[in-house]
Amino acid sequence: PPPASPLSATCPSLPPYFMKGSIIQLADGKLKRVEDLKTEDFIQSAEISSELKIDSSTVERIEGSQTPNSAIIQFAVGEHKAQVSVEVLVEYPFFVFGQGWSSCSPDRTTQLLELSCAKLSVGDVCISLTLKNSK
């Protein structure tokens, strides 16, 4: 029989920082709640950062995954439109430029994290990060 852990009945949880009320420290040291973050907070923090820069990742495709409660999202990243696929839980929130948090299943995000979310759709432009070239 497959090994059963006491927690196996619950769905895999998201990182704690997406829970409504989580305290987020911006690059300038200011503290904000995760639900209060704005696009400018990410942009300004990346400007201060010596290692990270903001990239835009456009959602090109969203499809179901064999993993329960998961989806595979294909992004075109940056000006070179590099194709990147990520498998995430449907409630995983992404930050859409000018809009805010969005997920494949806003209802689940709200239910599990209390974070209000829009529906992530093809064409949405999400904030992503790349490492600044260090070489």
Partner: peptide, 25 residues
């Protein structure tokens, strides 16, 4: 009510997925 003394503070960049390691051309 007793407030917790230490509230976890998370860095802003933990909220954003690292999708592209670098732009190479």
């Amino acid at each position: 009510n007793v407030e917790p003394r230490s509230v976890p503070v998370f860095p802003w960049h933990s909220l954003v997925p690292f999708l592209a390691p670098s732009q190479s051309d």
